[in-house]
Structure formats: structure tokens, C-alpha cells
Design a protein around this nucleic acid. Structure first.
Lengths: 341, 341
DNA sequence: TTGTACGCGTTATCAG
DNA sequence: CTGATAACGCGTACAA
């Protein structure tokens, strides 16, 4: 444990008061140039630097906002962060980022860490593990506004930014139906996320609308990351229950499925067509290029940050609001029906 | 500006002393159960919560370490962060992440932000813009150890984690030479980075060793991101100065080049072979799969974090050290010479 | 069991 | 121009 030099140390060394030291150091004019020089020299000698925490204790403002994301291995959250950074920078605030690693417990720790750094607001996309409901509420009650984006928490009264998952999933499924595929499956995400449920609902409703059969095998729980899509598809192949097309919860799942398809000597889209979701940069680069729903990630980040700044700056605190952004289906080779033409 | 409730407010409301309130709230036994109950009720009524900054002012420890990365759009830094997170978590520390967006000025702001949150140490990979030399030194002098990783700052006396860029670049180039390619070019990175210089040096020395000609056109400055590789390759194609093989500064550059090659109706590796660097997850997924140098990203994060914790925890402060990790060339289809056999 | 007083590091106010 | 002192919010010896 080190002992840092303080103004008091300098004052003692020079036999003057802390007040004078403080003034000399803050470069005011109402101090004798000579003593000022002495103070600055002594400060340098002692390697003095002001204690940032003491400063903050008085200001009671940090000009900082905090962010919690589940992960940033896929390019999805990084794109959102870029949007957040832009708005936050422009507003003269700074951004502190933490990663919950999809763990509720780590999320808790992160939130408390941000709180103890006195961030003035928090942006969060929650873990797939579940919700730290009590803590969200507690933080908000404590006067720190929270804005949820992408993966939101329904039961907390806070601003939220989402996309129209249901509709896009519905249209993506219809796209497969209109393309002439008959046996259409869905690889779904983590049970507890609202986005999972919404996308699944979109899939189911589209299938029902067109009187397509949905049985026990139609929907497989995959998850979030690539390896889950890989194993889900592998299991289907092993069971010889191979669908003509799969609508996947997200791009990594679709890419994992693609890998399994290729390894089994099958082809995409000839044998199995694929549709992803949440457009990652990789989608366009793989072979075949992946049909996917493009989310306005950058815009989502901007919007979330703006909502938060509103909560922070405006008095009285404005009503919370939920913004729904529009996504778009990019049709590429992975979902072209080569049999039908 | 809100007014938060403090123990003083509670004390006033109940006509007792702040000390009693403090004790009651911290759940000690040496306080009348009755007053304790009253205090807790009043605290809840006033929506009291302890001021984290005041607490920290006494402890003088934050149990937090800070991180600055240039970006996390490519999967490179996220992988490193995963390694850092692991070690930091295990040590009971927390991690605060900031993104410099490849800007020296943002990097400055981030470093100061971390400093003012009293992190106990900082991990950093510097921007391609250049070095905030004075600030690094100042922070270290102030008693906060810094560990550089990947993109390091040579002139600061601090611990560093790097890979053997020179050797790997040398071997990657030799791989192309041994494969029988004659006209071999290099797309290089940002001028100011040491990694750029090391990789370029490896390329040049390998070419020289085998008496290959290097002229003004052999080396093109590309940069860091995909679009730069794209435009660099486009320019060569326009000039009809098409190399048989290109050793690229990193994977995104190689992927950009690949895009340009395909768009021009050329094929990889038949017309232009490619080798990347710093293995991203995409490398294996593109068509053709990309030959690339695999960096031990996770391990790099672990190592950097461990070095930092050493600096933080051990007294007297241990000597700084530079760790060089071993990378590995993964040969895939993009660099197979189809003419030679 | 409770209250007083001080310390953490700094700035600001006021009196000298 | 300078020094003493209060204030920021909390914990905690020590005294009552």
C-alpha cells in the first residue's frame, strides 16, 4: 500500500497552509509568485497529484455514464457501442463499459461497480441468464436512470429500445414459405429472453397463417453462440430429420448450422436453406452469403444513449418511453430455392 | 441537480446523531433495536443510499483495473478481453473498459477517466494514431502501473506483452516463397505502430534472404480495417499490377483484398493468393478459407492481466518485464499454389 | 446504548 | 497575499 502525497504534505514541508498550496496549485493569481514557485517545486519533488475521489466528493457529478453488455465477441454489440459512443461523446459525457459475460452474477457486480463510480445513468442489455430485477429497480429508485436496449426487462418501468422482432421473424418465415420451401424449422434462442419469445412467436404465427404444420421437431432450442447452432444442426442430421430450410435465432447460430451442413457433405441452400437474424458483418462474407435480418445497430446505440441523456438532463424527469426501431430482411444466396427456380 | 439523502438528514429527522445512524445502518449489534428500527424505516422513507465516493475516500482502494482498447469491431480485442476478464475476476478485481476509437485524444480522455475513478492499474493497447507518451509516463509516475499489450509503446518503462511479429511475418513470407509464388507483395499497416514495422521487417528480410526483388510497388500502406485492404487491392488491379500473392498486415485487410479480387472477376488463390495475420474467427469461414497467423489472443489477455496484478500487489514493485508469446501460421486454401502443384 | 469529534483530500469562504 | 475553518458523506475511536 503506497502513501500518496497530499497538499497537506506540501504545506507541512513548506510551513504554509493547505489553502495556500491549493491556490498555488490551481494557478490562481492571488498568490505570491514566489511562494507559488516554491509550492510547485515541492509538489513536483513529492510527486504530488490531486486525489480524484476527493474532488468528486464535492462536485457530486461524474459526467460519466455506464454500459453493461453481455459480450462483444460477435460484432453485434460493438456496433451498438459505436452508436452509443458517438452520442455520449457529443454530449460531453464519458463512457465506462463492462461485460457481464452472460452471467447474472457478473451483471450484478458490474452494476454495483458502475453505481459506486457514480455514473449518472446506465445503459444495459441484459444477460440470457435472466433478470436482476430487484437491482434494476433499486438503482432506478436511487436516482440513476437506466435505459434497456435490445435485450430488455419488461417488468421494470424504464425507457427501452427494441426492434420489431415479431414482425421481422414473421416476414423472414414468410420469405421461406413464399420461396417454396415446405419443411421449415426454427432454431430458437435462450428461453428467458423476450427477443427469443418474440422471434419464435413470429415464426409460429407465419407458419400458422399459411397452414404449415408445426410439430415437436419444428422448433429446436439452440442458444446464442455458433457452437450451439452447429450442434443443433448436427443432431438433426444424425436423426436424419433434415429440414429444407431453417430460420435461425441469430447469425452465429446460422453460421454454426452452416458449418455442420458443410461438414456433413450437404449444401446450402440446395439441401438446407438458412436465414439468420441480427446481421453481423460476417453474414455477407461466408459462402454462401447469408440471408439475414439487418438490425439498425448503430442507430439503436444512438437512440438508447439519447433516451438516457434525456432522463439525466431534463427536469422534471421525463416519462419513460419505448422506442421500436425498424429492421430489414436482406435476402442473399443462403435462402434461394434452387429447385423451384 | 438532485439532492440525495444522507445520514445527516436521517439524524436530523430523528433527532439523533449521525454516528448512531451510521451504526444502525451498518447492522451492528451495539445499538438499541428500537432506534435501529426507526433509523431503517426513516432511511427507507427518505430513500437513503450511501454515497459510494465518500466510502472510497476513506478506503483509498477501488479494487478495479482499467482497460483501453482501440476498438472492438473485429473479434481480435474481444478475445483478448476475455482472457483479461478471467484473470481479473479470479483476482477479485473488477474491470472497467474504454474504447479509444483509434484516436489519441479519446485515449487521453479515457486514461484520465480511469485515473479519476482510481483504478489501481491500467491495461492498454495504443491507438494507431500515435502515443500519448507524456501521459503514460505521468500515470506511471503517479503510482498507477500500466501494462501494454499487442500495440505497445517502446519508450515507456513498463511491462509489455507482444508476439514475435517479426518471426511470424518472416515465416509467412517464406511460406509464400516456398509455395512457388514469384511476385509477392505486402499490404502494410499504420506507419506508427511497432507491429507494423516488425511485420514489414519480417517481410523484407525474408524476401532479401531468398534474393527476391523488392521495388517501390512491393509494399503498399493499407491500414487496419477491411475497406483499406479493399481499396489497396483495387488500386493494384486498376494499375494492372497484380501480384501472385499478398502478405497482409492483418485479417481485415486480407478480407478486404479478397472482396476486391472477387469483384474484379479474379480468383483466390488461383490469381492472387492471400495471407492474413492475427487470426480472426472469420478467417476460417470465408471462401476460400484464409491462411493466417494465429495469435494467442486469450493468452495475451491473461498474461497482460497477470503482469499488471503483479505490479499492483507485490511490494516492492517488481521489475517491469516484456513477455513475447508465440504465434502460429495456419495454412489454408487462400495461399495454395494451384499452378505448381 | 448514544453522542462528540476527527480523519479521508480538496476547494471555498472569510477574516486577517 | 495568506491562514484558519467549514464543507462534501461516511466510519469510527473515544467519551459520556
Amino acid at each position: 500500500m503506497k502513501k500518496y502525497s497530499t497538499i497537506k504534505d506540501i504545506a507541512n514541508a513548506l510551513n504554509i497552509s493547505t489553502a495556500t498550496v491549493s491556490r498555488a496549485l490551481s494557478g490562481r493569481c492571488d498568490v505570491n509568485p514566489e511562494t507559488k514557485k516554491l509550492v510547485i517545486e515541492e509538489a513536483k519533488r513529492q510527486n504530488y497529484r490531486p486525489n480524484p475521489i476527493a474532488l468528486r466528493l464535492q462536485n457530486n457529478r461524474s459526467n460519466t455514464i455506464g454500459l453493461v453488455v453481455p459480450e462483444f465477441k460477435s460484432s453485434f454489440f460493438p456496433m451498438i457501442i459505436a452508436g452509443i459512443q458517438k452520442v455520449v461523446d457529443e454530449a460531453g459525457f464519458q463512457l465506462l463499459i463492462t461485460e457481464s459475460q452472460e452471467s447474472m452474477e457478473v451483471e450484478r457486480r458490474n452494476l454495483k461497480l458502475l453505481e459506486s463510480n457514480m455514473v449518472e445513468g446506465i445503459l444495459i442489455s441484459i444477460t440470457r441468464d435472466g433478470e436482476n430485477l430487484d437491482l434494476y429497480q433499486d438503482i432506478i429508485d436511487g436516482g440513476i436512470p437506466i435505459v434497456f436496449f435490445n435485450r430488455v426487462c419488461s417488468s421494470v418501468n424504464a425507457s427501452k429500445v427494441v426492434i420489431d422482432d415479431y414482425k421481422r421473424a414473421f416476414f423472414a418465415t414468410e420469405h421461406l414459405i413464399y420461396s417454396g420451401f415446405k419443411k421449415i424449422y426454427h432454431f430458437t434462442g435462450p428461453d428467458k429472453l423476450i427477443v427469443t419469445l418474440e422471434r419464435k412467436r413470429g415464426f409460429v404465427d407465419a407458419m400458422k397463417k399459411h397452414h404449415f404444420n408445426i410439430n415437436d421437431n419444428s422448433i429446436t432450442t439452440a442458444g446464442v453462440l455458433m457452437d450451439k447452432g452447429y450442434s443443433a444442426m448436427q443432431r438433426l442430421i444424425e436423426k436424419n430429420d433434415i429440414p429444407e430450410a431453417v430460420f435461425c435465432f441469430n447469425d452465429p447460430i446460422a453460421l454454426g448450422a452452416l458449418k455442420a451442413i458443410k461438414e456433413a457433405g450437404l449444401r446450402c441452400p440446395e439441401d438446407v436453406a438458412l436465414v439468420g437474424f441480427s446481421e453481423t458483418e460476417i453474414a455477407q462474407l461466408v459462402d454462401p452469403p447469408l440471408t439475414s435480418v439487418e438490425q439498425p445497430t448503430f442507430e439503436m446505440g444512438e437512440t438508447a444513449a439519447r433516451l438516457l441523456l434525456k432522463q439525466i438532463n431534463e427536469t422534471p424527469t421525463p416519462e419513460v418511453e419505448t422506442v421500436c426501431l425498424l429492421a430489414k430482411l436482406n435476402i442473399r444466396k443462403s435462402s434461394i430455392n434452387t429447385h423451384k427456380g
